[in-house]
Structure formats: structure tokens, C-alpha cells
Design a protein around this nucleic acid. Sequence first.
DNA 1: AAATGTTATTTGCAAAAAACAAATAAGTCT
DNA 2: AGACTTATTTGTTTTTTGCAAATAACATTT
Lengths: 219, 219
Amino acid sequence: MEPVYPQPLVMVDTALFTIRDERLCLILARRKEPPFEGLLALPGGFVHAQEDADTEAAARRVIRGKIGFDAPYLEQLFTFSGAARDPRGWSVSVVYYALIPWSLLEGNPSAEVFPVDALPPLPFDHGQIVAKAVERLRGKATYSSLPAFLLSAEFTMNDLHRIYEQTIGARLDKASFRHKILGQDIIEEMPNRFRTGAHRPAQLYRLSSKALTAFERKI
Amino acid sequence: MEPVYPQPLVMVDTALFTIRDERLCLILARRKEPPFEGLLALPGGFVHAQEDADTEAAARRVIRGKIGFDAPYLEQLFTFSGAARDPRGWSVSVVYYALIPWSLLEGNPSAEVFPVDALPPLPFDHGQIVAKAVERLRGKATYSSLPAFLLSAEFTMNDLHRIYEQTIGARLDKASFRHKILGQDIIEEMPNRFRTGAHRPAQLYRLSSKALTAFERKI
DNA sequence: AAATGTTATTTGCAAAAAACAAATAAGTCT
DNA sequence: AGACTTATTTGTTTTTTGCAAATAACATTT
């Protein structure tokens, strides 16, 4: 029952977001093989029949290969396809995007981390892919706890506020933000834990179990 | 530079939504070949290297084959993959969903149109696919002009109101709905055009160019 | 022609949410 | 102790929403 048609190449690519120095960034990989050998591109690879249960497993494998561990948040973005997008021929690329706290990436060669508004020219259709990934991230940020996955497990209200502003790319009122977030039950106070610094200490929060389970189900 | 790995089967499936008798429905197709020959399933097929520029073109081809014309609204939903989802083996299915006004479908064998909450058992992983498609449609309905594509080009405010209620599956206040919709500039009055009936005539509207272009860009 | 029935559309008001501006709180540092 | 800085709360205004009722417009009946 095999199809009589030639089949396209099937690959996965990944858009790995992080926030470094208050700016939304992407992690790129230098290509080790042709085509476009030596250029920076989105980390990706073919789907392996043997190792990958599905494309999401393939994406996880690619991400582990790039950063050494699993991304706290991973979601399928879109599938790009066509005869022209890859010089090797007709191909289908299932693209995933992931959010990774910069704190987990310290020590990574920062040469491969670029602000999304200052990326080098990208090969294939990776420019379009990035545009779509940023659009999706911005869209979801406004009505979900998604941006919190760019922070480490403990964070202050101000950290969260800043992260939302950076991913959305707009100013948000402090008092309203606080009120809205607390009303959604997506974060919870860590009792008696504060971030202490030069001035008034800030309450530490963590994602609530509600937020965590909601996102395992990929709301 | 061909990959050394075996490649999965690549296909497209479609979730074709319409509203008939005030209920959100899906159009199914009776399978003409094994596996699951004779059962109702989502319309789909393999991607043809010769005919299809990309998976979206393949989806359009499948849809034309099923209903005879192009759907007013078509969007990629998600890509499902795995070794177990199709008995023919490892496969990747790029799924699209479409919105089709029932008025364009009159005469279609209604035996193949089922309310989404009363579908027959579906083969493959089509049950999951439907669940995801309904979820996406409902999600987008609340903040976009999407449901309007289930209506024909001219509609009254009440038509629109009813369609939103049916896709979202909840009651919406008449006055608030009207106010909100008009504030978004997604529809515009058709000057001096009314739907006349037994009682007070209703203003006819159409989608604004803003809404149309927004959705060509797949917001 | 006037009254009636029915659907369409507008209006008014109370409640809730959001935006804006400022005050208060809680530490460190001098 | 007082200045300084960041965190958090409070109050006020503006905007949106929810709900209920009034008004408008026509066809049909009286």
C-alpha cells in the first residue's frame, strides 16, 4: 500500500527564543554541511525513523543537540513546504519553537545568540519562519503565561513584568499587569521567599501548577 | 545530498467546517480505498510532487475534489506524525481547516455532513485532529472575524451574531456584540441594502477590506 | 387607515476592568 | 537617623461589558 508518488524530504527546524540583556533573541547554529555550509541558520535536521517517535521527538533531539538539555517550553509552530525552499529539492519542514531562560544558557557561545531585530541573513526560508515564530510568540504572550517560561523557576513580579514587555514589545501598566496576572492564578507566591538587593526586597513567585499543566496540554 | 534515512509518507487531511441548521458541522468523505475502506473520515490524500506546489496547494486540491470549489477560508492547523497513526506505516499529515458557508453547499449529500458533537467514530487519529480543529476555531472566533467566513458575502448583524454564538458555543449579548464588532472595523454597511422579510428590514453588511487582507495574511 | 405583531436597532444605566497617577512600604547605604 | 531606591498598594478616571428596556421599521391583519 505504498503511495506511487515520490515523497518529499521531511525535516524539523527550531526557533529557540531566549531573552538576553532585556532583548528577545534567537539561538542560531552554524551549518556543518552543505547546502549553505558555514552559515548561521535555525537548528534543524532530518526526522530519523529509528530515533524519533514523531516530529516533536525529532525537535527535542535537535534542541538537546544544540543546548544540551530540554527546553522548558516547546510547541509546534507551522509546517513549511515546497520545491524551492531547499536546494536539495522538494521538502517539508515541521517547525517548532521553544522558550529557554537565559540563565540556563550562560556559557553558551553568545556569538550564536542574536536579537530578533538584528539577525544575520538566514538561508532557506528561515527568515519567513522567524517572522512567523515571533508573530506567534507575541500573539500568545498577550493572553497567556507563556513568557514566564523565559524566566527561571523563581522570579519577581518585576521580572515577569519586564519579560512580558519585552516579548510583546510594548509598555504595560505596572498596577494593571500585577492585578491581571494575580487574577489568573498562573503564578503563586513562594511563602517567605524574597529577592533581596540594595533596596526593598521583592516577593518571589513561581508558576502555579495550573499554568504548568495548562501548557503541557498546549493551550 | 539525499538523506540516508528512510522518509515518512507525507499526506494532507482537511477539517471542513460549515454551519447547517444552526449547528457547527464537519464534512466527511467515505474512503474509497484501504485502509478503512468504506468508512467516513476527514477528506485527505497524498501530496503530489507534480501537481502540488506545497501542502496548502495539496489541501486546496483535496477540497476542490470534495466540494467542487475553493473554500473561502483555509488555514493550516497542525502537523500530526508518528509510526502508529496510519497502518501503512510511518507518516506525517499536514492538516488544514477550512470554513465554508452552508449556502454554497446546498445539494451536497447531507449524509456526509455531521454536527461536530455527533460525529461517527473516525479512523486513524482523526478524532484527535477534529478536537484540535474545533479548539482552534473556537479560540480564534472570540477575537477575530473568522466566523464571518461561515456566512455568505452579505449578511445581517443578527446572522453574524448567531454564527459567533454557534462557533463559540455560548451566548453573547446583542448590544455588546454589535458595539464590539462595529468598533473593530471588520465589517462595513452595504449602503442602502437591506434584508427585507415579514418585519423590520435588517441592514446588510459585508467583510471590510481590512478583515479580508488581515486573513489573507493569516492573522 | 389604524392597530398589531415581530424583528431590528438604539439607549441608558450599573458593574467590572483597565489606564493613569500618586502614595506608601521596606529595605540598603551613608 | 535620613536619604535613596525599588516594591507594592491605593485612589481616581476612563473604557468596556452586561443587562434591561425603549424605540424604529416594516408586513399583516382589522
